[in-house]
Amino acid sequence: MSFLLACPHCGLRDVNEFASAGEVTERPRTSPSVHELSSYVYFRRNTAGVQREWWYHRFGCEAWFLAERDTRTNEVLTTELPRPQPRQGSAAPQEAAAPDVPEV
């Protein structure tokens, strides 16, 4: 593999600077059945064509981002920073209290 990938922060870079975490998966929202769990953990669509993937700029800005890549040609169509889907029930952002920071 020697294709180029555009990091949303750093621009076009050699693929060797990045780590791929494979296709984007959907984490089940509620308690899944064993079948759903193993599909999520072990099974991938393994698309021959354009797929959405997670990439990490490991030897760069260390950002995670999403890319659309054609797995047949390694042509990268788009890259973008994730638009997070806040978890249900996760705390809403609030004003930070002054942290009690030790001198480390």
């Binding site: 780590a19 975490a21 984490r27 997670w54 990490y56 490991r58 260390e62 950002a63 995670w64 981002f65 994730p82 638009r83 997070p84 889907q85 806040p86 978890r87 996760s90 705390a91 952002p93």
Partner: peptide, 14 residues
């Protein structure tokens, strides 16, 4: 560190 950053990217927590 990568694992933490990844879940943070997925969940977008503060």
């Amino acid at each position: 560190s990568e694992w933490f950053e990844w879940w943070n990217a997925v969940w977008g927590m503060d």
